[in-house]
Computed example of a mutant assay.
Amino acid sequence: MTITEGRTLEQRKRDVLARLERETDVWVATADAGGLPCLVALWFAWDGESVWLSTRITNPTGRNLRDGGRVRLAFGDTQDVVLVDGEVRTYDGKEVPVAGIETFRAKTGWDPREDSASYAFFQVRPRAVQALNGVHEMRGRHVMKDGVWAV
């Protein structure tokens, strides 16, 4: 393995934001009240401040997002990863803000409300973001802490 110099915080932030715009799927990690973990891939949309997800409120991920209020999102592979820890706000299909559903529909081409009333929407506000491209970028990987970008 060749160790190279890592990206600046500014470049990492730009890369994170580009990834949020470009990618369609994200790994969603939740846990229930007893600590049982759940990991699924979901479509997502980024509105410039929050990540929007949708899944059925009746499945484990939906319940965990609603009840736990926290989530970890993961993009990429182990050599180019972005981790987002966020706080979750849950909306049913009738109360979801118009801007949230329009952002989600524009990105995915899908309106879950048309499939089933059991779909809920989840607004994830990032609280911490880590970005690293290999071991050499472990130092300086925190590009957001306590909801504030480092740059």
Rank of each mutant, 00 (worst) to 15 (best):
F122L: 10
V124E: 02
D25N: 15
I57W: 05
P97N: 07
T2M: 13
L36C: 12
R141T: 02
V51N: 00
H136R: 12
D32G: 15
T103N: 10
L20H: 02
E137C: 14
M144I: 13
R19F: 03
P97L: 10
Q11A: 13
S116C: 14
Y91V: 11
E23G: 06
A120W: 06
T78D: 13
V81Y: 05
L73S: 03
K107D: 01
T61G: 11
K145Y: 05
D80A: 15
T108G: 06
R12P: 01
R72F: 03
M144S: 00
W52L: 07
H136K: 13
G100W: 00
V135R: 15
R72G: 07
D111N: 12
R125D: 06
R141A: 11
D111Q: 09
A29M: 12
V26W: 00
P112W: 05
D115L: 15
Y91H: 15
T2F: 09
T90D: 04
K145F: 02
T24N: 09
V51G: 04
R66H: 08
F44V: 10
A99D: 07
V82N: 01
D25H: 13
G6M: 13
L17R: 01
I3T: 12
T61E: 11
D80P: 13
L65A: 11
H142F: 10
A128W: 01
L42F: 01
V28T: 12
I3A: 12
G48D: 03
S116E: 03
T2P: 14
S54G: 08
K94D: 09
L53V: 06
L73F: 04
A41R: 10
K145N: 06
E21H: 04
G62A: 09
R105W: 04
V148I: 15
F75K: 05
V16C: 03
M138F: 14
L9I: 07
L83C: 08
A106T: 07
T2W: 08
V96D: 00
P37K: 11
V96K: 00
G69Y: 09
A45Q: 04
V135N: 13
N59E: 13
Q123F: 08
D146S: 15
K145W: 00
L83D: 03
T58M: 12
D25L: 15
T90L: 06
V124T: 04
